[in-house]
Design a protein around this nucleic acid. Structure first.
Length: 425
RNA sequence: GGAGAGGUGUCCGAGUGGUUUAAGGAGGCGGUCUUGAAAACCGUUGACGUGCGAGCGUCCGUGGGUUCGAAUCCCACCUUCUCCGCCA
């Protein structure tokens, strides 16, 4: 969430930002409710002060008459306080709802636009492969080589689930190990996180676990949800923590399963492994000082590129436009890899995403660091190191051969132990 | 899952209704002393809200309740430890 004082002092900018993001949050309402809540709080505080003073008068020995007068006074105060406290709770809930709907501000360089086609392409790397045969998509390849089974998964678990089989399992583990090796060399702390988190933590990160629009599965009756990304468990890791400046920055690499409802997502764009209810992901997460977050954002993007470049898959980088930014993000870069089986003749598909969320998450989660001028909120950033399901799409489709086999990217061979799936043995 | 015992400030730990404005100790920071360090001694040391400020308010696992007044009494929940059961 944003600082209410910032909202008040920059009301026009905040409103413009909400509009640019295609959102409907009401900044005026948040400020209004804050003032109401605040004046009520002051009223309650002064009554409490009277109550405390009254109680203090009763510490010593008093005549029964004197005591009776004080008790009567105390009872009156108690009633008034209870009344106002009830009202306050209502105001506070309304205020909380209002301010939580307001999205993070955007980096001045974020392109203004409504949807993903308004994103700015920053660069392209690698050469789009040309095939002298008709390339298949990963679904056909996976079925032909007995690597992915969607049909049985649909029967057992429902649509948008899959079984990975045979060498695809080794390939997935190879990708994980390849990624973790790079991240450890770069000084990330490796963490395997829980796949379940409390709803309040998910909400603090900016995922709303409730409601029809939620992309998150809740676990009934437990107050918890299946995580949509390790961003939730990594961001919640230091909730309520006050860092010493010397502890920062902190770089974490978390591996988890990710669960997404993806309600209503169907069609060509979402075919096969591209959009599924469950996948495995290695996620990077950084806690740092505010003045460092822009450069750490670039660092996360560079790391994503380094990992992806090692797979010899062509990709481009886009600077996400305002309308396509999540509520928490100040700025977001995506890597889109070339997927020859996508659309007709291939298309770009998102494989990583890195966001600088500045202090939007830390303010809600209470993650701070000490300064000479009091405690300040840290900046928090996240980035995909490796989303396994989408990486498999890229490898299958880009490295398919005319005989139906799939070559393994050079750098992965030490991890897989084989250099080709299918075809000649 | 059953039985029992706990959860207090950065840490340890005292505190069972109003001299607690949370004792005491450790650690941290500042100082005295010292060539320097250690020791000793003195001082200081939480968070949040609000207010220009002095200040005021809130926070003793969480949420309710009792009371003029709650760290302290009651209820529910969470969580840690010990033992038993079950289990990869």
């Amino acid at each position: 969430m944003l600082d209410i004082k910032f909202i008040r002092e920059n009301l026009d900018l905040v409103k413009e930002n909400i509009k640019n993001r295609n959102m409907t949050a009401n900044a005026d309402l948040a400020v209004f409710l804050y003032d109401e809540k605040n004046s009520l709080q002051q009223e309650i505080d002064s009554l409490r002060q009277k109550r405390n003073a009254n109680a203090a008068l009763m510490k010593g020995k008093l005549s029964p008459e004197e005591r009776a007068v004080l008790i009567e006074e105390g009872k009156n105060l108690k009633e008034k306080i209870a009344e106002l406290e009830k009202l306050f709770a209502e105001k506070e809930a309304a205020y909380s709802t209002a301010i939580l709907e307001i999205p993070n501000m955007a980096h001045p360089e974020v392109p203004v636009g409504k949807e993903d086609k308004d994103n700015t392409e920053i660069k392209r790397v690698g050469k789009i492969p040309s095939f002298n045969f008709k390339p298949k998509d990963h679904v056909e390849l996976g079925e032909a080589l007995d690597l992915i089974d969607f049909e049985t998964a649909a029967k057992v678990s429902g649509p948008k689930f899959y079984y990975l089989k045979n060498d695809a399992v080794f390939l997935e583990f190879a990708l994980i190990r390849y990624t973790l090796d790079i991240l450890r060399k770069k000084g990330f702390t490796l963490i395997e996180t829980p796949d379940i988190a409390k709803e309040e933590v998910a909400a603090g990160i900016g995922f709303n676990p409730r409601g029809d629009e939620s992309n998150i599965y809740t676990v009934e009756g437990t107050g918890t949800c299946l995580i949509g990304t390790a961003e939730i468990t990594l961001g919640g890791y230091y909730a309520d923590k006050i860092f010493d400046k010397s502890n920062l920055p902190i770089k974490m690499a978390g591996i988890s399963h990710c669960f997404r409802r993806e309600a209503g997502a169907a069609g060509k764009h979402s075919r096969g492994l591209y959009r599924v209810h469950q996948f495995t992901k290695v996620e990077m997460f950084v806690y740092c000082l505010p003045e460092e977050s822009d450069s750490f954002h670039k660092y996360l993007l560079e790391t994503e590129e380094e990992i992806f470049r090692g797979l010899d898959i062509p990709y481009r980088v886009v600077d996400t436009c305002s309308g396509d930014l999540g509520a928490s993000a100040y700025r977001k870069f995506d890597i889109e890899a070339w997927m020859p089986g996508r659309e007709n003749g291939g298309d770009w598909g998102e494989v990583t995403s890195t966001s600088n969320c500045t202090d939007f998450q830390s303010r809600r989660l209470g993650i701070r660091y000490k300064t000479d001028n009091g405690n300040k909120f840290v900046h928090m950033l996240n980035g995909t190191a490796m989303a396994l399901s989408r990486a498999l799409v890229c490898i299958f489709e880009n490295f398919q051969q005319e005989d139906g086999s799939i070559l393994i990217p050079r750098k992965l061979i030490p991890y897989t132990g084989f250099d080709r799936i299918g075809g000649k043995v």
